[in-house]
Design a protein around this nucleic acid. Structure first.
Length: 265
DNA sequence: ATGGCAGGTTATACCTGA
């Protein structure tokens, strides 16, 4: 039995309903994990997304910014969300499926402009957030766990996850301290980078392109900020990965594109 | 030239993203 999961920072779920419908058309995912929904739960477009075939939903929104949601064709046996760094700021949701897979959807803080936790509270928050994730998943590590971790993690760890390793070493998202924090998180949970299972590290791989580029496609100054990780119990189940680069060129695009994993359970 | 744009808000300027 196959399981298809997509993750997408949509940058406003209400403005992106047609794009989500197009993703459903393109990849027919069983589960869609959204970030930056930017809407309170009472105004979340539950019915429109149920009509697309996703009646099972976990919604963790706040006013104006952040916000995550898990949309599913498959029912949940359990679901919820967790506060990180003591903040109820809409950055996490999780859902356990009947097939034993638990999906965790994250929106890690971007971290502001200055990569110094002493002078920039946003950067300190980002490092604290990654550290808390590290402790959380280290404590839950077990060989039989079938965990999937997806989302906008706001770190591009590898040299070919950014358009210029050299130019971005001092830019938040690709600094050494962030990459170290992400590496520690991956080690603590035995996480496998599913995207890089299929695209070797020598190849450039991006999931985000700035709105500010004159021609995002021509300049191609992207970063891989969005990730799909699995625990070792799911490694053999990995079948393929798709980065829907075309979505960046759609009408009224998000600056991120969907990333989709297909597994065979 | 990573900030040139985009989204939200009790807005019509300012915050946020990365």
């Amino acid at each position: 039995m196959s399981l298809v999961i997509s993750t997408w920072n949509v940058n406003s779920v209400r403005l992106r309903l047609d794009n989500i419908a197009a993703l459903a058309e393109e990849h027919n995912p069983d589960v869609i994990c959204l970030q930056e929904t930017k809407v309170v739960n009472d105004s979340f477009p539950r019915d429109a997304l149920a009509d697309l075939g996703y009646p099972h939903q976990v919604i963790n929104g706040i006013k104006g910014y952040n916000g995550v949601a898990i949309l599913s064709r498959l029912p949940f046996v359990d679901s919820g969300m967790r506060e990180w760094c003591g903040k109820a700021d809409g950055r996490h949701a999780w859902a356990a499926l009947e097939n034993g897979v638990e999906v965790n959807n994250f929106y890690v803080p971007a971290g502001g402009d200055v990569p110094d936790p002493l002078t920039n509270d946003k950067f300190a928050h980002k490092l604290d957030f990654l550290g808390e994730m590290t402790n959380w998943f280290a404590a839950r590590k077990a060989p039989d766990n079938k965990l999937v971790l997806v989302g906008d993690l706001n770190v591009a760890p590898l040299e070919n996850d950014v358009w210029s390793h050299k130019a971005l070493l001092k830019v938040v998202s690709h600094t050494a301290v962030e990459v170290e924090a992400m590496t520690a998180l991956m080690a603590a949970g035995d996480w496998i980078d599913a995207m890089r299972r299929f695209v070797p590290p020598e190849e450039r791989l991006y999931s985000w392109w700035s709105y500010r580029a004159r021609d995002w496609d021509d300049a191609d100054k992207g970063r891989r900020l969005d990730h799909i990780w699995v625990t070792p119990a799911l490694d053999d189940a990995l079948e393929s990965i798709a980065v829907l680069r075309d979505a960046r060129g759609w009408e009224k695009p998000s600056d991120h594109v969907p990333v989709t994993v297909t597994m065979k359970l």
